[in-house]
Design a binder for these strands. Structure first.
Length: 548
RNA sequence: GCGAUCGUAGCUCAGUUGGAUAGAGCAACGGCCUUCUAAGCCGUGGGUCGAGGGUUCGAAUCCCCCCGAUCGCACCA
């Protein structure tokens, strides 16, 4: 189709009807109304400026020379749109193609590009995940799914901050809670973790080992508790994420970077003159790369900062051969972007190859009121609590239905409703309804649709059927686009749109009780619709139930 | 003060990267179940796309400048 238009344009140029020259690629859109045809292109308008010519004239010259057997007729409209009216066969052929693809519809051919790594969540293993992590987990896992469907070789990774202050802090916190359980009068660490899970951890240690650690010094106890608590917290983290349908190819431990990898990265930075000592500390000269100020990488007490480990970690990613890194961070970390990229530049890597996606903050609403959360007081709503209250499907869908750039108001009451107010049920219901139709059709002894060639898709003439075919045909492009713009909400929206078209069809057309050839064609259309709904929901990590 | 993100219907948000009459859900109102799931469908009302200026055939979208919201601006992570 696109080539037919280009050919017509070149022919027009050869005939002198329009000036020759470089032409922009042809893009198609679906017109806002059926009177504007089945699809259209703004090709003439796109090229009007370069050709110094009225777009309507360009469009007319192209239309006059257009030869395409799929097109019934083409018209010039508006400021220079070319509207195409397809031959009847085209939609039927399209439907056959989609039906034949089965559950593979939406899987794009592999791209000839080096692997991309998506790192997300990477929460400290010091306590339960909160809802902000939940959004990161939902978006990250959905993007991994979308990237893979779009044909990218994609690896997912979780960076475990299992070294440094926060782990020592965890050990001190557990230690304090342990002593409290024996009635000891202890001062809880100033910056300790106040969550109830820390008390539970201490309790489990007491249940298992009793008072055997009481006689040890604080330091000895903390050393033991650090490992005990860490193992427990990490296991809990994996378990909670798995329950949220989030898994990783690699769990990367920060500890493995100590000390060689960090020392080596620092040595490299010194070698290129981008690290210097001042006031007893070692600084990264990030101001050379547009940062507001230089950043400390080794404190004056000799301990490396979080940034030092992060530099070594990202260096490690590049050394593993990744040419494109995507990190998903909470928006509260945005100030960190510049310095990490600065370090990558200093080490000779392309800062553009490190892409940081920022997720805006999540606010929970219950009874129309914002739910306060605070990690310090331990009163935050955890991801686990949210999953239990609204379910995994609703939680994931709600995290994914908005643009990552938008702050998210998560309405717990709406997410819990099992009705038409809740978009996730609306989509799932469409899938369940289709499965139910198949069940009824089988019970009625109706022939199940077989090979695409044996089905007469030309019988699908209802407006709602044509709309469904058109939307189904757009799905692969939608997957491509969602990957390109890192936009899982586009898939959420697509699934909702498709569900809506199906519900419309369901109210207008019947499968059972119509002539068999038509019934079979409709079953085939519904099979394609169910497959696509399941595929789209699968990208989002949302279940597609057979009955509700 | 500097930076990031955002500002679109009463509320929560989409908006195919500059295209035709700006869309959806919720909320409101009115209809539709003796036939495949009413967790559904159909219809009605609702807009100065934060304000102003600019770029051009054409702007919610790009540029400038204000206003407002959120989040950051550590030898914490």
């Amino acid at each position: 189709m696109a080539s037919a238009i280009l050919a017509a344009a070149q022919e027009a140029a050869a005939a002198g009807a329009i000036p020759g020259g470089e032409l922009s690629p042809v893009e198609f859109t679906e017109p806002p109304s059926k009177e504007f045809g089945d699809f259209s292109t703004n090709f003439a308008m796109q090229n009007a400026k370069a050709l110094h010519m009225n777009p309507r004239i360009i469009a007319r010259e192209i239309v006059n020379r257009l030869r395409c057997e799929k097109v019934d007729r083409a018209e010039v409209a508006g400021a220079g749109f070319i509207n195409f009216f397809l031959k009847d066969d085209f939609l039927a052929d399209t439907a056959a193609k989609i039906y034949a693809a089965g559950d593979k519809w939406g899987n794009l051919p592999p791209k000839d590009e080096p692997p991309v790594m998506i790192e997300y969540v990477s929460a400290n293993p010091t306590g339960p995940l909160h809802v902000g992590h939940g959004r990161g987990a939902a978006v990250g896992s959905a993007l991994v799914n979308i990237f893979r469907a779009a044909g990218y070789d994609t690896k997912s990774e979780f960076y475990i901050n299992d070294a440094g202050n926060q782990m020592a802090n965890l050990a001190r916190s557990v230690n304090a809670r342990y002593l409290e359980l024996f009635g000891r009068d202890v001062v809880f660490p100033e910056d300790g973790y106040h969550g109830e899970d820390i008390i539970a951890t201490a309790q489990r240690i007491k249940d298992k080992d009793g008072d055997k650690y009481l006689s040890l010094t604080d330091e000895e106890r903390q050393k033991i508790f650090l490992d005990l608590a860490y193992t427990e917290k990490l296991a809990a983290l994996k378990e909670d994420l798995a329950a949220f349908r989030v898994t990783f190819d690699v769990w990367f431990s920060e500890r493995t970077l100590h000390d060689e990898a960090i020392d080596s990265a620092i040595a490299d930075l010194k070698k290129v003159g981008k690290a210097y000592e001042e006031n007893g500390a070692l600084w990264l000269k990030s101001t050379d790369y547009g940062d507001d100020k230089d950043r400390v990488i080794v404190r004056d007490n000799g301990v490396g900062t979080y940034l030092a480990a992060d530099i070594a970690y990202h260096k490690n990613k590049f050394e593993r051969g990744f040419k494109h890194l995507i990190n998903i961070w909470g928006a509260d970390h945005h100030g960190y972007i510049c310095r990490v990229k600065a370090a990558m530049s200093a080490l000779g890597y392309d800062p553009e190859a490190l892409e940081i996606m920022l997720l805006q903050m999540v606010s929970l609403y219950r009874d129309g009121e914002p739910v306060k959360m605070s990690k310090r007081t331990g009163q935050s709503v955890t991801l686990n609590e949210l999953m239990e209250e609204v379910g995994v499907d609703a939680a994931r869908y709600f995290f994914l239905m908005r643009s990552p750039d938008s702050q998210l108001d998560f309405d717990i009451d709406l997410a819990k409703k099992q009705g038409n107010e809740n978009p996730v049920y609306y989509i799932q219901y469409a899938h369940a309804r289709i499965k139910s139709v198949f069940k009824s059709a089988a019970e009625a002894g109706l022939k199940q649709p077989g090979a695409a060639e044996e089905i007469n898709f030309n019988l699908l003439q209802d407006e709602s059927e044509e709309d469904i075919i058109k939307l189904l045909s757009a799905y692969p492009d939608e997957v491509e686009r969602a990957a390109k713009y890192r936009a899982p909400q586009a898939i959420a929206r697509y699934a909702h749109d498709l569900a809506s078209l199906f519900h419309g069809f369901y109210a207008r057309c019947r499968v059972l009780g119509v002539e068999e050839e038509l019934a079979v064609a409709r079953l085939a259309l519904l099979a394609a619709t169910a497959n696509t709904l399941e595929h789209a929901l699968g990208l989002l990590g949302v279940a597609a139930p057979d009955k509700m």
